[in-house]
Design a protein around this nucleic acid. Structure first.
Length: 273
DNA sequence: CGTCCCACCTGCATGC
DNA sequence: TGCATGCAGGTGGGAC
């Protein structure tokens, strides 16, 4: 699933379902995805969900004293059910609330992770990770972005996938942003000119915003909590290999950049001018 | 610090 | 059908 728009969509749905509820029981079927299983159980039992927040692609389930950091990685999903029947054979964690409903965490590939932090350690945790700013107008400064990119002698796609400069972009939205900005993913970040950086900045903010409004992108997917997104119908380049470029009609190609499948129009996105 | 490569897992599409 | 291969919306670690 999850880049920022999908995680944000899950966050909103999860918040509606679980905020104010109190945890009665926790069943863990696959402990490896949890950093400290004992602490995870103890800190949640009989505690009330205060809020569900998000930082980049991380979900934050906030209790009175503790925060559960949940990263969905490639295939993590949440479901709400009204019985304690497991939703699928890939459900690894299940929470029962005193109020009745059940929260289930499913993760086919088992890449997702849970970490418990005391509330005061949440901000330092992300600082230590060097997690970049949220890609919103009021948090993502163009001046700062220009300075950060000048320091990066890496391919721009690699810089945007790495969460240090700006948080939340993944393979889909990076391809979409670079395409709309007419920038080749293998261009070196520090070589981009001022107007190219401005294009990038604008498209990062607007594509992320549009995708959140659409409820995220749903590909090869069942409906995870909150995830009936329809941004997949708005994708212009990701997954469009062999189709015509919307701008010039040239065929969309798939290449490898930084070990990731990458979709481009090689006519609109040039390495050289 | 940047760049590769690999690891973590399972399921699905493709090709023989 | 069976089997091998490659691919998938992510991150973190080790080696050079």
């Amino acid at each position: 699933m999850p880049e920022l728009p999908e995680v944000e969509t899950v966050r909103r749905a999860l918040a509606k379902e679980i905020v104010g509820k109190t945890i009665k029981e926790i069943c863990i079927f696959y402990p490896k995805i949890i950093e400290d299983v004992e602490q995870f159980k103890q800190c949640m039992l009989n505690e009330t969900i205060h809020s569900v927040d998000r930082r980049g692609k991380y979900l934050l389930i906030v209790l009175k004293h503790w925060t559960i950091v949940s990263h969905l990685r490639m295939s993590g999903k949440y479901f709400i059910t009204d019985t304690n029947q497991v939703y699928s054979k890939h459900v690894h964690v299940m929470w029962t609330f005193h109020e009745g409903s059940i929260l289930q965490y499913e993760d086919v590939r088992k890449f997702g992770r849970f970490i418990v932090l005391s509330n005061k350690d949440v901000i330092p945790y992300f600082e230590h990770k060097k997690l970049g700013v949220e890609p919103y107008f009021d948090t993502f400064s163009i001046e700062r972005f220009k300075k950060d990119l000048q320091k990066k002698h890496q391919m721009i796609k690699v810089v945007l996938l790495n969460q240090h400069v700006v948080a939340g972009l993944g393979n889909i939205y990076v391809d979409e942003v670079l395409y709309q900005s007419r920038i080749h993913p293998m261009r070196v970040a520090s070589d981009l000119n001022e107007s190219e950086v401005e294009q990038l900045h604008y498209h990062i903010i607007s594509i992320i915003q549009a995708a959140i409004q659409a409820g995220g992108t749903t590909i090869r997917d069942y409906s995870s909590l909150g995830e009936q997104g329809n941004y997949q119908t708005k994708l212009c380049v990701y997954g469009q290999t062999g189709k015509a470029c919307l701008f010039c009609g040239h065929t969309i190609e798939k290449i490898i950049v930084g070990q990731r499948g990458t979709h481009i129009c090689s006519h609109c996105q040039r390495m050289t001018n």
